[in-house]
Nucleic acid binder design. Structure first.
Lengths: 118, 118
DNA sequence: GGATTGGTTAGTCATACGACTAACTATGAG
DNA sequence: CTCATAGTTAGTCGTATGACTAACCAATCC
């Protein structure tokens, strides 16, 4: 549970940076090497590498070194888990709103009945 | 677009802290005051307030001061938007996997045809 | 085998973050 | 009016983060 919480810390933390989100977007299209990922950014290579490490530590991507290039790819399951946390909170909230709405309709119905009877 | 990116920075950043996620979870059940939110944590009030400010700045919650208590509630739309970003990346990735799978089946079918014909 | 390419490590630096205490404000209750 | 309550502001402190440069390794290529 605490471990699960830590995974979310890392995942959300990883996604809080625009460069890293751009990397994720790139990887959602297709796997890529560190160099390819670095190209669109005016950024030193070690900086990108650091971002990739952060994403990897979060589990959102995985990497494998083949020869001298390191290929990176998205881990959809991890993205899904993160998404699920948000979906759950929203579901709880929205269920609550539904119940409230139902309750309000109920009250209104009662009131109308009263109007008729008094 | 840059503004949208900044909103995601704030939302994901806000959610990267376990205390703030706990606050969001609490608020998904029902709105609450700052004091109520602070209670479960062994944390000084100003610290919680700071977390609440971060959540508010991200748009994930909204607050309103009534008398001397400040009520906080979840903004489901903002949660939804954040969730959508993740859903989109995953959808793109999974569509790609589907295409690849289809392509592989295609190749296999071709190969079988070849086997029969040669 | 020597140069080139792609990545990696180490070390630095400025800024941001999360927590705290102490002191202050403003509302509501008796 | 006075006091307790709920929140707020200001200021401090240690650690984490994101960026950089310089130097280093290890596969390829010619």
């Amino acid at each position: 549970m605490t471990n699960q919480s830590h995974r979310l810390d890392l995942a959300f933390g990883a996604l809080s940076d625009p460069t890293r989100r751009a990397v994720v977007m790139h990887l959602s299209q297709k796997p890529a090497s560190v160099g390819e990922l670095a190209e669109p950014f005016a950024m030193a290579m070690p900086t990108i590498l650091q971002h990739i490490r952060v994403l990897e530590a979060s589990g959102l991507i995985e990497t494998e070194k083949i020869g001298r290039v390191r290929m990176c790819k998205l881990r959809a399951e991890a993205v899904h888990e993160t998404e699920q946390w948000l979906a759950l909170q929203r579901a709880i909230w929205e269920r609550r709103l539904d119940r409230m709405e139902a309750y309000v309709s109920h009250l209104q119905a009662m009131e109308e009945t009263n109007d008729r009877n008094c």
